[in-house]
Design a protein around this nucleic acid. Structure first.
Lengths: 339, 339
DNA sequence: TTGTACGCGTTATCAG
DNA sequence: CTGATAACGCGTACAA
């Protein structure tokens, strides 16, 4: 059994004390260049890496932040997460990713796990979750921020965008094209404030022109192509048939596209379809989706900076609201009777 | 400052020694039920969670496995990873995910980071990488497996599928439809044995009927819709124009689909397009892709089991080859002249 | 600028 | 079945 080199081995090798070796690693400028060189040589020769456990124990800090996302199998989180990770990595902190499958119990369990691993800070998606989760975080006095959502008077540090406003903007655009018979294929709203916000936004816009958004023209489905296909089918079977379907995200829109075509209709000539998020999929389908563009990467980067700042300065986190915009492609046009 | 409860607090609370508390957590059956109940009550009341660092230090084990993938922004890894994670999680081990952006230097750096965090085992994607990486792993005596690839005489534990054989099978299918003018839009092959294998497989099949696969009918592009769009454009500009484009994965196929349409042609009537991986995207595009179905989830689960076994038993890992199959959808048909 | 020495929270050995 | 106690590897007062 080839024991890993310890700080002790390094110190002997370099002819200094362990304290000096430690300083070379954590505060290099506090040690004379020559000594440092000797130490660094020893480190290199032995292939020494500080033991994570020892370090965590002594410093009570892990250089780790945890994030719990609903699922890895979704490009919308992947993009922002990637950026978050890169920024953290550039500051020598590791990102621990766990998934909850949109289930608050699972999420709580994952938070516990992450906490148990001594993360220095934590990020969660959205704001809607049972109070236990927030309680836990506050008991542990661990800094955390919420992502992908924004509410001006949220009680928490939150870096995201206003899903409601963005959805309203999109619905306004659909109205501007002349649609009056509008359906919404939304995400499942239980413990998902983004999905809720997007519905409310659409409802706001429609209400302004005295249109009511409700079942059966409002339907919820999981964020998968297949489930959305089925849900969109149901929407298209209604009388009168909607001339536009506003979807909770791009994956749902892809499913809806499929459903429209499957019914022998054309997008956008017979039915318009719009998405949300602007993931790569939005450009891959035919016709490419008119959708809400979200600055995923910028959000991720800013979130990372904020996290780092909270860890290092103990300051409370900010609330930060990102602007979204609508990217027009070809899946939205005027309704058939106005052609 | 609200100090976290330690094992000591629990032991005092329960009126037992720290050793007993520890046993309750790690070997519950070695302690009398009544004592255990007292301890568990104390744990619950105090909200105690073992300190990760202390545990790692004392046990020299972290219940952690690390994996380095090229990128999170790809559904093909997400699927398998999700399954891997679930299986590990069910066994109380946490998965640490890092990304390399298809860059071996980055990968090596990430391996170092993971190693520094004391992962008990490690998984890497594919087999092609500089020797330093393997060296490092072996020096550290840490079990590792390779994923998403398979080679019978690989020197490493490897759980995946034979990319070459799968690609050959696909190319054979394309040939069986009567295509003789076949192009390939491949992934970038540098340090990517999956991309290489897929090219070789296609080449094998074509060579068997005396067709040579080479530039300009073979072209490499990054795994993105946009880059693949451009590359496919180039392919379609060739004379004679290929009647079928075999793509390195589904994302590339989506780009190719786009390019064909953009040139005023139809899939599959004018040009057939086939993909690889069978991610959700394959069913979302129009026409849905004929592609290679890979058992991502099963692979992930098996990989996790293997990893756990290597950790617990110190046995060397197996080599495990998964079967792939072709799922026929609508993007492949006979070439135009045979209609 | 460098060294000494203690403590961080846990597990494991060994004795009872 | 339980308890006392010695590691585990590192950071950091404090002293020199």
């Amino acid at each position: 059994m080839n024991r890993l080199p310890t700080i002790d081995d390094v110190s002997r090798h370099a002819g200094v004390s362990t304290a000096t070796v430690s300083r070379c690693l954590n505060a290099p400028d506090q040690v004379r260049p020559e000594t440092r060189a000797r130490v660094e040589a020893a480190v290199a020769k032995l292939g020494y890496t500080p033991h994570f456990g020892g370090r965590a124990l002594a410093a009570n800090r892990t250089n780790t932040v945890g994030v719990v996302i609903p699922t890895m199998a979704s490009a919308m989180f992947a993009l922002g997460l990637q950026a978050l990770q890169e920024e953290l990595s550039a500051n020598n902190v590791t990102l621990l990713v766990a998934t909850s499958h949109y289930d608050p119990d699972q999420e709580l369990k994952q938070i516990r796990t992450l906490l148990g691993r001594g993360v220095d800070a934590m990020a969660l998606i959205g704001e809607a979750r049972p109070d236990d989760a927030y309680q836990l975080l506050q008991d542990r006095q661990i800094p955390y921020i919420l992502l992908w959502s924004y509410r001006a008077n949220s009680a928490h540090a939150i870096v995201g965008f206003d899903n409601r406003a963005a959805a309203r903007q999109m619905a306004d655009r659909v109205l501007a094209f002349g649609h009056r018979n509008i359906a919404m294929l939304a995400g499942v709203t239980t413990w998902n404030d983004r999905a809720v916000g997007r519905i409310e936004g659409v409802r706001d816009a429609l209400a302004a022109v005295d249109i009511d958004l409700a079942a059966p023209y409002l339907i919820e489905a999981p964020y998968s192509v297949d489930a959305s296909f089925e849900a969109a089918k149901a929407l298209l079977a209604l009388t009168p048939r909607p001339t536009a379907i506003i979807c909770g995200n791009d994956v749902q829109a892809a499913g809806a596209l499929h459903a429209v075509r499957d019914g022998g209709l054309a997008v956008p000539d017979d039915v318009s379809v719009v998405g949300f998020d602007d993931i790569e999929l939005a450009r891959a389908v035919e016709p490419p989706l008119t959708t809400v563009q979200v600055p995923h990467r910028r959000m991720g980067r800013v979130a990372a900076k904020q996290l780092l700042n909270m860890i290092n300065s103990n300051e409370p986190g900010d609330r930060m609201n990102f602007e979204t915009s609508i990217v027009e492609r070809r899946s939205l046009s005027s309704p058939p009777n106005r052609h």
